[in-house]
Amino acid sequence: MNAAFRTWALSEAPSSRRQAAWGNRYRAWLNLKGNPLGMIGLTIISIFILMAIFAPLLATHDPATQELANRLAAPNAAHWFGTDELGRDVFSRILYGARVTLGMVIAVVVLVAPIGLAVGCIAGYFGGIVDTALMRITDIFLAFPRLVLALAFVAALKPGIESAVLAIALTAWPPYARLARAETLTVRNSDFIAAYRLTGASSWRIIFRHIAPLCTPSLIVRVTLDMSSIIITAASLGFLGMGAQPPSPEWGAMIATAKRFIFEQWWVPMIPAIAILLVSLAFNFLGDALRDVLDPKGN
C-alpha cells in the first residue's frame, strides 16, 4: 500500500490533477520528514492534541478534587507531578489545561482567519478608497504591541477566558489581512479573474469563491507560525490575572496562583511553565520547518 502510493504519487508523468496534487503534498511531507526540528515539533504537537482529547482517560485524579492534608507535595508515585496549594493533582490539571489552551487557540484562529481573509481580499480587490480605509484601520491595530492592546481590551470587558479569546483575536487579525491583501493584489488583474467578470460574476462571488481560496494556503502557514505567539499571549494574560480565572486549570493561571511558592516548592509553578514552553517551542519548530518546505527561497 505504502510503496504503491509512493510510486503513484512520485510519478514523473501524473495522469490526473489529483495525482499531481498528491505528488506535491507527498514531496512536501518528505521534505518535512527530512527536517529533524520540524518532526520534533510535529510529534510534540500531536502528543499535546491527544492529551487534550483523552484528558479524562489519562488523568490519574479528578483535576478539581482538593486534598488539603497533602498540599504542595513533591512529585511522587501517586501524584506524578506533585500537588498544588490546594492538594489538587498537578498532572491531571496539566492534562485538562491542555484542553483549555487548545480550545483558546482554536477559538482565536476560527475568529481571526476569516476576518483577516475577508478584510484583506476586499481591500485588495476593490482598491481605492476601500483599500485605504481598511488598511488604515489595520495599521491602527498593528500600532500596539499585542499584549498591551489585549490587556486594555480585557480590562474594558472583564477578565475571563471569553474576553481573553476576544482580545487576542482583536489583536491578531491585522497581519492576516495584510497577507491576504498582498496575495489578492497579485491575482486580481490576472486573466482568469477577468474571465469570471466577463461571464457576469458579481464582485463578492469573485472575491469569496475565486480569490479567497487562493489566499488560504499562505494564510495557513502564517497561522502555524503565529500559534506559539497566541499561546504565549494567552498564558501571559492568565499569568497577569486577566485571562482564565482560577480554579480553571489553564496553564498561565496555574502559574499565577502558584508563583508565590517559587522559592520553596519551585515545581508547582514550573511544571505548567514547562508545558507552555514545550508546546510553543513545538509550534515554532514546525512553523519554521513548514516555511522552509513550502518556500525554499525564503531560507
Binding site: S228, S236, L277, L281, N284
Partner: peptide
Amino acid sequence: HSVPVFMLSMI
C-alpha cells in the same frame, strides 16, 4: 521566541 518571559524571570 518560545519561552514565556515570566518563565525565564522566575527561573
